[in-house]
Nucleic acid binder design. Structure first.
Lengths: 272, 272
DNA sequence: GCTCAAAATTTCGCAGGGCGAAATGATGAG
DNA sequence: CTCATCATTTCGCCCTGCGAAATTTTGAGC
């Protein structure tokens, strides 16, 4: 279809508002005004339309607005997510319930990773955190570095080859193979990755681990924390082990989903 | 907030279009025109806006239009789904991949069940099937009947008491306790439920099983098939066991998610 | 390859729907 | 109680979204 119309302005605006509402648990009119640049009467009008449609609830007295369960109708037709994301969602929620900090899952997409699941909206202490569908560098971001460090050598060589020609500023270190090899080596030794300290935001840091299956990386799992809330050492002591345990469980769940028979005679034929 | 504006027409329309796109894998302009009642130029204009925003892709030559992975940004803030839904999603997808027919998961909500997950968009052979967020009768629908039949006696008595005053036509049988008790007894004996044959659509049927935990029903899982594609006996032979096996796995996953320690010393203290 | 029904796309004049500055109201920190 | 700030409401205006009609495209059937 060759586009015959310009985008419908109020529709584009309403999706910007809804997307913003999905980024946190509760959002105010002011928050939406700031995030979208829309005049407040416009924000209110669109909010009221979303409330009328059932996708949003709340008002000022409740501290703001939030999405309702009905928003699942707006994405229920998309099931193309990786099995690792399907299997990992509940574990990420479990981690946020246990530790309160936000957790995310990312998968490889060409020469970067994409956040496919995030519990940012469920965490009351959310540093600026990659929102869902955000593409993150394999070179400078924790979620990406965990992928690069733990994927098979042949895959890493291929990815690094692609990254050498990348013009993205955050991929710059890929053009210094020796320096970056040291980074990769350190990550492999310690079993987890962290964001390049040169990359914004500077008030937070994150820790990521790979989700492995048969020496392949299915995806990566990470948390983010405020530097003001704990030291790096405290964060490592607190998060690395639970991240690794959860990653192992996610991998087990993927295994089971891929191999469990659903009929008794399938089981019989396998043991037969 | 007291509503100060009428809903923005084009916004309401665009969500109706997007919701419809989520109901199936691929949708045509004609399909959307029929489902929403909107004139085709209006449908095309809204579609182009959704494409421009990245939530939809495709065109006539691809057989129609479909939602993209970006729609997950429109619901990512909602995480209030029951753990049974989180745990069950991947299993439902697995079932559809294995059997091609659609599968759904529902949970209790007051005096009916609500479909919280459905693989209808992933199944090329989708009979009219309950879409996500649809409320279904406990009395006449398979997903609801499976709940009623297998929940604890005390809970069933309470639900039946509520249902006796229901004016919904599909709950009518709740007012004939003896007749309905026979239905419940049969379902318990055979281990699965089916939709009341008097309820539309008549060209399909479904089979549902409970997802049990400690004698409580966490939710229900079902499939739908065309009567023209197989006999009732063939459907029972094909689906009941896999449904029951998948339901057992889902329940196990819920158990593990609720109880697994994420730190080694938690594990130590438990075994200590 | 042609016909033709049906679906898809495009045009464009029009009017009313959506807009946002300004005004007013509500809230809560100090 | 004051007052800064956020929330809500008003309402005149204008340009955005509309949809009938026209045109184009598609593919089934022969």
């Amino acid at each position: 279809m060759m586009a015959s119309y310009p985008p419908v302005q109020s529709v584009t605006r309403s999706f910007a508002v809804l997307k913003e509402l999905n980024r946190r648990k509760v959002t105010t009119v002011h928050d939406l005004h700031v995030a979208t640049g829309l005049p407040k009467p416009t924000v209110v009008r669109l909010l009221e339309t979303l409330i009328d449609a059932g996708y949003v609830s709340g008002d000022r007295r409740q501290g703001g607005y939030q999405v309702t369960s009905l928003v699942t109708s707006l994405s229920s037709g998309f099931h193309g997510d990786h099995l690792v994301v399907e299997a990992g969602r509940a574990w990420a929620l479990l981690l946020t319930r246990r530790f309160v900090w936000p957790f995310s899952i990312a998968v490889l997409d060409k020469d970067c990773v994409v956040v496919r699941y995030s519990t940012v909206p469920d965490s009351p202490i959310s540093p600026f955190h990659a929102t869902i569908n955000m593409r993150l560098s394999l070179v400078s971001r924790a979620l990406g570095r965990a992928y690069l460090a733990f994927c098979p050598d042949s895959e890493r060589k291929l990815l690094l080859k692609m990254l050498k020609t990348s013009t993205a500023p955050e991929d710059a270190m890929a053009r210094y193979p020796k320096q970056f090899a040291t980074v990769i080596k350190t990550i492999r030794e310690q079993g987890f990755s962290e964001r390049d300290p040169m990359v914004e935001p500077k008030n937070s840091c994150n820790i990521a681990v790979p989700i492995m299956q048969d020496k392949r990386v299915l995806g990566t799992l990470c948390t983010t924390y405020f530097k003001s809330a704990m030291t790096r050492k405290e964060a490592i002591d607190l998060f690395v082990e639970p991240l690794q345990i959860a990653a192992a469980h996610i991998a087990e769940d993927v295994d089971r989903l891929q191999s469990v028979p659903l009929v008794e005679d399938d089981l019989t034929s396998k043991t037969g």
